[in-house]
């Protein structure tokens, strides 16, 4: 075959390769646009039917049979209290487990097994956590269908997320930093406490916020343990005007939460309840998006002073 002919063939082939390359770029762009479009349509749709319903009256009223008077007060208060329980259980346990696995645990078959199963736990359907919480917290420990039981169920659900986020944050710290601390005579605990935790706070906090924004939207486990869908009172206040000023009675109070309130309204007939559901959904969405935004800002801020 003459050289010039070979060259022409190569050129033809190259232009075909280039065109495949170009087309993949275009298709990828469209797919990305489509995905974002779905999110935008979802938000617009929620906003169209729910935005006009969001006002102070809606935020400060209990649910009601009359849709125009109904509000989400007990729902968002319930959600906040749930998150307090979830965070105060999942964060210390998850961070401690992450530190143990990353910094203390020996690398052997047993820890490999534990590691794989933590990833598996993150994939367990949330309703199963609900069933576990129903059997364990509600019946066995007799916590009842309470904020405590619901918060613990959600804590179990997000625990693997916190563990994985902690481990990933610790893993970004180079081994040379650990060795520098150890070479000066630090114990493992001192290396963790003086260096590794402070340098990974940003990453861990980001993971915690993402875990919480996952928990805040969960309804299946709460419904399973029997959260009520119609609550026209608030749990007992955690702060009292008289000694001892702090009360934990709210932990054992029945509760509802934003997704459950939404679920309740969606399942009712009537246009107006649907728009209440949309408004609650929009509110939930705003909370979730602002939590994710906070996570991004926090990550940027925390990494500003730390370079390796």
């Amino acid at each position: 075959m003459p050289a010039s002919q070979n060259l022409r063939k190569q050129e033809a082939r190259a232009s075909r390769r280039r065109s495949i390359d170009r087309w993949f770029g275009r298709i990828g762009f469209l797919v990305t646009l489509g995905t974002l479009g779905v999110l935008a349509i979802l938000l617009l749709n929620l906003a169209a039917s729910g935005l006009t319903r969001i006002d102070w009256q809606f935020l400060l009223s209990f649910p009601s049979r009359r849709p125009a008077e109904a509000g989400i007060l007990s729902a968002w208060v319930g959600t906040i209290l749930l998150m307090m329980v979830t965070a105060s259980v999942a964060v210390p346990l998850g961070v401690a487990a992450g530190i143990y696995l990353e910094e203390y645990a020996p690398k052997n078959k047993w820890t490999d097994f534990v590691e794989i199963n933590i990833s598996n736990l993150a994939g367990v359907p949330s309703i199963l956590y609900g069933l576990m919480a129903l059997g364990l917290f509600v019946y066995q420990f007799r916590f009842g269908q309470s904020i405590l039981a619901g918060g613990l169920a959600l804590a179990c659900l997000v625990l693997p997320i916190v563990i994985v986020a902690t481990r990933e944050a610790l893993r970004t710290i180079p081994a040379s930093i650990r060795e520098a601390a150890f070479a000066l005579g630090a114990t493992r605990w001192q290396a963790v406490w003086h260096h590794l935790l402070p340098y990974s706070t940003g990453g861990i906090a980001t993971g915690v916020i993402l875990a919480m924004s996952r928990a805040i939207g969960e309804s299946a486990p709460l419904i399973t343990i029997g959260a009520l869908t119609f609550i026209a009172f608030l749990p007992p206040a955690p702060i009292l005007a008289h000694a001892p000023f702090i009360s934990f009675d709210w932990l054992f109070s029945p509760f509802t939460a934003l997704p459950i309130q939404m679920f309740n309204w969606v399942s009712r007939p009537g246009e107006e309840f649907q728009s209440n559901a949309a408004a609650a959904g929009l509110f939930l969405m705003l909370i979730t998006l602002s939590m994710n935004g906070a996570a991004i800002l926090l990550r940027r801020h925390a990494q500003r002073n730390i370079k390796w």
Binding site: P174, S176, I177, E179, A180, A181, F182, A183, L184, G185, A186, T187, H195, Y199, N305, I306, K307
Partner: peptide
């Protein structure tokens, strides 16, 4: 080992100051 390390200083290959 911690007592040993307090009597030996160490300087590593790449500068590794704490942040």
């Amino acid at each position: 080992p911690i007592r040993v390390r307090m009597r030996f200083g160490m300087v590593f290959q790449k500068p590794n100051p704490f942040p």
